[in-house]
Amino acid sequence: MGVRKQAGDREFQAFVVGRWPRLMRTAFLLTGEQHAAEDLVQSTLEQVYVAWHRVASADAPEAYVRRVMINAHARRYRRKLREFLVPRSEDAGLTHEVADTGDRIAQADDRHVLLKALAELPARQREAVVLRYWEDLTETQTAEAMGCSVGTVKSNAAKGIAKLRAISGLAETVTLGGRK
């Protein structure tokens, strides 16, 4: 193996270790499932490795990685792997009661309600919501990651948020100020 390639591999390894937690969280919100999230992140990073020569010298490697991940997510969605998005059966039919924010059971319920609600959003709306409100990207950055116009991002994010607000459990949580 060449010296430059070894150095590139070391650099890439450091990149993977450093970005893995954040990418896993984003992938989890996109897929709603632990193993699907791991698959998505690993597949994304393998693709990044192929282009690492170019990615490493780019100004914003994170933007490239996000674009690859969103593309990979979109492709999987098109293949209708909806089983990744469907909440587990034991989560179905949970009744939601608003409780003290310190209540761990209620907090877990909120997570499941949100993940279920996210899973029910169309893929593009889910991507827009996750990138805008979890990744905290601007509309322009989100548009770059999704490969669409800013207008499309606005539309998808607004529709996604509106649907999340309409979920009764979330609406109650949001009305009370959300979790801090």
Binding site: R25, T26, F28, A37, D110, W134, D136, K180
Partner: peptide, 12 residues
Amino acid sequence: IALLLADAADEV
């Protein structure tokens, strides 16, 4: 919503 997403993301 951002807070809820952050909370949900911690589940992974």
